[in-house]
Design a protein around this nucleic acid. Structure first.
Lengths: 166, 166
DNA sequence: ACCATATAGTTCTAAAATAGAACTGTCAAA
DNA sequence: TTTGACAGTTCTATTTTAGAACTATATGGT
């Protein structure tokens, strides 16, 4: 399977992974949420090669996650700003941060704390059910085929996917 | 920067990306949450090469996200099961699914629907503040240095990171 | 006029990762 | 004894990435 073909997969994970499923894109996004906007700043903070950075920024722009906006003329220079589509990735980034904070910290503890301006407290992100508000646990979720799936149960879909892959 | 050095970064995103920051690991995890457990099933569903699959499963086991458990003898065969550390990645996967459902679906709509067994309804995952329960928006969050950061403000940390990368 | 600096890239080669296919080993069942 | 299922491993060709150098445009200093 090639990168390009991921976008056309009938799975939302696969389609999202086509956008953010490489380490540099995720690290660039992290920095975007920390208000980093410019090429040089991304480059020096991340230590990514300029070549790859240019490529990833271009991709993120083409996916509509970032937009490239001029911030001066003579010479014209641009910065990279999260679109609404990009801002909507915040839960993804926060979920990743929280998992890292829980499972990958060293003895010194978490590197960053997050304050919720609304309530003024340091918080952890919690994923809850939009209907009942309870935290979501994998075992308490049942999966159904949606309209975007070819008809059938999750098992049938799995079987089709398997057949297609062969 | 090399893959190995990511783990030692002082950022939880970077450390998490060392584990799940490639497309195959994320797709393998998606399948794990859909109850896929065996090598052949991952391989046929994902279309990943056997070489890469073996490598990623080994990595996920070594990170403690999956465990390799025997399910028969003669010949001994193993399956891959999410550990608690792996189950804790559910919010990450769900956040990714939800973003894909929102921004990457085609005209037919989302491929899968999720039912919360507790309340019996189809739901979307929502990320909320652990303290006040309100949904989290990027602009309403302020970042502070935590104990695992070298001392200083987020800006100073950024400056240090930049200096280190140079 | 000349040089250094800042910013945002592009280009080049070597090294690493991945794709795709074939092969290995173990055992059960036909 | 042959076939098939399962879980890998090995091989070569292709693609991607790392690392460094180079380009382009303009400002500001001497």
């Amino acid at each position: 399977m090639r990168w390009d073909s991921l976008e056309q997969e009938q799975c939302s994970v696969a389609r999202t992974v086509a956008v953010i499923g490489d380490r540099w894109s995720l690290l660039i996004l992290r920095d975007c949420f920390l208000r980093v906007r410019r090429f040089e700043e991304f480059q020096s903070r991340l230590g990514v090669t300029r070549h790859i950075l240019a490529d990833r920024l271009k991709k993120l722009v083409s996916f509509g996650v970032l937009r490239r906006a001029p911030y001066q003329v003579n010479p014209t220079r641009h910065e990279y700003i999260l679109t609404q589509k990009g801002l909507d990735l915040y839960p993804v980034v926060m979920a990743i941060v929280h998992w890292g904070d829980t499972h990958m910290v060293d003895e010194r503890g978490r590197p960053l704390l997050h304050e919720h301006k609304n309530c003024g407290k340091m918080f952890d992100p919690v994923m809850v059910c939009s209907e009942c508000g309870e935290p979501i646990i994998a075992k308490e979720v049942h999966v159904h085929a949606g309209p975007g799936a070819a008809t059938g149960t999750a098992e049938e879909i799995a079987a089709r996917e398997a057949a297609r892959a062969r």
